[in-house]
Write a protein that binds this DNA or RNA. Structure first.
Lengths: 242, 242
DNA sequence: CGAAAGATTGAGATATTTCAACTGCGGTGG
DNA sequence: CCACCGCAGTTGAAATATCTCAATCTTTCG
């Protein structure tokens, strides 16, 4: 019953994992497809919880609102990611989920998913793995926020985006950010000016390059250079001696 | 099957929720109790995932380690909280879970939990709610980290701790922090000196008071004062006019 | 008691924010 | 068609919150 569909030869890869999951969902639970355009919200804070949403295409952000108007981008979501998990605990969504581009989400009623899981236990596996992965991702975000200087956080952000694309089988040397500097800054806990300066410094150091198309398209010669840059900013200078 | 045990009259409260959950687990899955002392780890990063752990007593922190040695406290856990959820996705724990005091955790094999859930669907509910609550909690942490100045973050931390105790039916006017200034600072993304100064300022403003017992015991006349303090630091001064 | 660890406080250093000016781009309408 | 406006982005310089370094004090514990 957890058998892999015949044509997905690469069940071990992330591409395969995501494809298999989408297939599994299609085969075993009722799905309502929904198109969204940039700026549309999939759900909003306070709204009664009923469904989970799986990203089929497009780019989404999750925004946490404080009572007094502070707002914070707390996550970015790509194909295969789940939205709405924050609503399970209280029966009300705790955030806004907003499309950053045209895309499609699959709405799945939570109660039907649980029902279906009795017959198809693999559904539980994919759900739990999605939640667990998001927890880990959040923890990594906190690690970056608290331990890295601004430039390194921006580098980490680019690496994260590139990795997300790579896991989905897309090219990673040329990425198009779907966010303004202000949104990136909010996500990374810094101002838009600091994001701009950090990107300029990364470009000056030839870790990234701006394409002629616009400042939102970024060429990344090698993703490893981003990783190296991050380590470099943290490493004690004495590390060279041994 | 989701029936409430007879003596827990307060199923709606958090106290009742936690007591009911612990009872449910005891009744429906094999549990291995394990005592821990301050500094013991419940599990460590990289270790093969097999069990989830429910805090029965004590105080725990979750620590995320980066490859290069940066480390970050990413969560605090009290009675009724679940540990190990980060291990589900990859079959390896992604963090260290460390006891900050003597306490007891209940180890539950994940595979047995899933098996038992077929007969006792309420198990799924409590598991999913625990994961969802932690996601929401993480998002709130990010909101604080990114949008609040240091003093307000410390105030938010104290409020969080007081709330956690209140939800568990303990007194909240007098709390004993189980963490050093360095640990608090790490958790809040600031240095230990900044934590110390923030606490001093809160005490000077009479939002909190230090007890004679030591600087780890903090008297909180009214938790609302902490909330007010936070709002105050964020509010635009012009908010008074209307 | 003495040593080690934890906590407080001050003063100077620094990363980031704030404020401000300027550029480029895309759309809209005269 | 081009002028104009608003939005996104870049860059500079001053302001500031927090960090770093250092001295001092307190508590804990063997």
């Amino acid at each position: 019953m957890t058998e892999v569909t015949s044509f997905s030869k690469c069940a071990g890869s992330a591409v395969g994992r995501i494809a298999d999951m989408l297939q599994l969902l299609q085969d075993s639970v009722p799905i309502q497809r929904r198109m969204v355009r940039a700026g549309d919200s999939v759900y909003q804070v306070g709204q009664g919880f009923g469904s989970l949403f799986i990203v089929n295409s497009g780019y989404f952000k999750m925004v946490n609102l404080s009572g007094e108007g502070r707002e914070q981008v707390v996550g970015l979501y790509f194909k295969g990611d789940w939205l709405g998990l924050d609503g399970i605990a209280t029966s009300h969504y705790a955030c806004d989920a907003v499309a950053m581009d045209t895309g499609e989400v699959w709405a799945i009623r939570y109660d039907m998913l649980i029902q279906a899981a009795v017959r198809t236990p693999a559904l539980l596996t994919v759900l739990h793995e999605a939640m667990s992965r998001e927890l880990t991702r959040d923890h990594d975000s906190m690690l970056s926020l608290c331990t890295l200087p601004a430039d390194a956080r921006v580098a980490g952000f680019l690496r994260y985006w590139a990795d997300a694309l790579a896991q989905r089988g897309q090219r990673t040397d040329q990425i198009t950010l779907r966010m303004t500097r202000a949104e990136i800054g909010n996500y990374l806990g810094m101002t838009l000016e600091t994001v701009s300066r950090a990107l300029s410094r990364l470009a000056r150091g030839d870790v990234i390059r701006f394409t002629e198309k616009g400042r939102r398209d970024i060429h990344i010669p090698q993703v490893d250079a981003l990783t190296a840059f991050i380590q470099q900013t943290v490493a004690p200078v004495a590390a060279a001696f041994h």
